[in-house]
Each structure stands twice: as C-alpha cells, then as structure tokens.
C-alpha cells in the first residue's frame, strides 16, 4: 500500500491496494482488522495504480493505470468502470506515480517517475533515452487526449521523480516528495519541493527542504499538510519514520 487519503468531509480513509487491483474505503475511526465499507474492484474497474486522491466535493476518486489517469465515483461499490480517463500522446503521461486533486481551483496534478535506476549499466546510447520525471498540471475535469496546462521538468526543477503530492488550494501550491534515483539507498539531491500551479517549464521550487544531516531527511516518499498547525508531515523511507516540520512560510 503506497498511499492513504483522509476525506475530512465524509470522515473516511481511502487507500489503493494494487496487488488486488482495488480501492478500499474505511470509516475514519476504523481500527484493527475492521473491513472496508466500500470496495471498487473487478473486470470493469481494471487495474489500479499505487496512488490515488479523493475529491470529496465532486465525489470522485482519481488514480491511474499504466499511462492512463482513471476517475471513479467516490461512492461506487463493486465492479465499476471509470467515468473519465486521460490518456494519449498529447497528455505527456509516462509512468505516472504521484497524483493530487484540488476541487476548489479545479486542478489535477500528476507526478511522473523516471525510467532508470542507479544499478542499471548506462552507455552513451542509453543516456539519450533516460527520462527523468516531471509534474504535469491538468484541469480537474480534463478527459481524453488533452495537453497539460503546465509541465514542470528539467535540471533547474531538480526533479528526478515525484512520489506523493499534496495541493494547498488557498495559495495554489503543489507540495511534492522528490526522493531521488529510485534504487539509491541514500540518494543525492532528494528534497521536498513546493511549486505554484502556474509554474511551467524548467522551474525550481519556491521552497525546498533538502535531505541532509540538519533536516534529518534522507529519502522523502510521502507528504501531507496540517494547515491548522502550519506543519508539513513527511514520511521517509530510509528513516523508516515520519518527520514533522513547522513551515509557516507556505501557509
């Protein structure tokens, strides 16, 4: 399980289970071996990605499979087909891995993975086909083979790949975990980055928390915001832990 979302409007916890190609919804207070209250799974549903996000206002769940973004009704239970998909060459969707939706400003953001690891032998020929990840910004209601409204990619962006992301609608910010080269145990250049919805091109983050001895970050995988306390909560794979930072600057 590589994602978890708390839906504060409906007091529910939503998780993807990619090994069983399912989306599970639990009561917010669920504890122990309590079963889910809804399951989306079956031949019509198809495959489910490692990550998802919930739009509690328009009642939709966003996930992906392969290079396709899929959208399901939030209240669906059983074998249901997606109600919308985003796919095609114009979308620039390649190896989607992070996903986040803003139902207030109608924005959907997709983080892309890289196609290389540190242990793979790299020749000059290979290096031309190496692709780092990116952040793609779409409209929330986009469907079909649409172009993203913004693409953040390139050396100044610092993005090698993007894991979990959160959006902060009040200031139109994208907060993303950038854990570095996938199989480097303690990769150089990992960070938590904050970009704007309007960023486009090879754009550095507005704010970044780098992985180093002072911040204690090593390989940030997940992020969630707590605006009430002006905190950013980060899960870190190499620390096998969770770190909480005060970050009033972004709230």
């Amino acid at each position: 399980m590589h994602d978890v979302r708390y839906d504060a409007v409906h007091d529910e916890i939503v998780v993807p289970v990619p090994y069983a190609q399912a989306i599970l919804t639990f009561r917010g207070a669920a504890d122990g071996q309590e079963g889910p209250i809804r399951i989306i799974q079956g031949p019509k549903t198809g495959a489910i990605g490692s990550r998802l996000d919930v739009d509690p206002i328009h009642n939709e769940i966003f996930t992906y499979t392969g290079n396709t973004v899929t959208v399901y009704p939030r209240e669906a239970n059983g074998d249901v087909a997606p109600i919308r998909v985003i796919r095609g060459p114009d979308t620039q969707l390649k190896r989607p891995y992070g996903i986040a939706v803003d139902p207030i400003n109608d924005i959907l953001v997709i983080g892309l993975n890289s196609n290389f690891g540190s242990d793979e032998p790299i020749t000059l020929e290979d290096s031309e086909s190496l692709e780092k990840g990116a952040i793609l910004v779409f409209n929330r209601t986009d469907s079909g083979n649409v172009k993203p409204r913004g693409v953040i990619r390139g050396p100044k962006s610092g993005i090698i790949r993007i894991n979990q992301m959160q959006l902060y609608p009040q200031r139109k910010l994208i907060v993303g975990a950038m854990p570095g080269i996938i199989d480097n145990m303690e990769p150089d250049g990992a960070f938590l980055g904050v970009w704007s919805y309007d960023d486009n091109g090879d754009v550095p983050p507005k704010w970044k928390i780098p992985a180093n001895d002072r911040t204690k970050l090593k390989k940030p995988f997940g992020v969630v915001l707590n605006p009430k306390n002006k905190e950013v909560i980060i899960s870190d794979m190499r620390n096998q832990g969770v770190l909480v930072f005060s970050l009033p600057e972004i709230f």
């Binding site: 507005k206 970044k208 832990g241 005060s246 600057e249």
Partner: peptide
C-alpha cells in the same frame, strides 16, 4: 517576464530540524 521569473527563481531553502521525529 513571468516565465523568466519562474526559471530564474532562487528557491528558499529551509534547513531547519524537524519539530518531531517518529521512529522506532
């Protein structure tokens, strides 16, 4: 100007320690 401003942006690097660290 906006695009150039984005590209030329210098990120604010935050190097403060975490408030809390949950680890076994």
């Amino acid at each position: 100007i906006l695009a150039q401003g984005q590209v030329d942006r210098k990120p604010v690097v935050i190097e403060r320690p975490p408030l809390r660290f949950i680890k076994d």
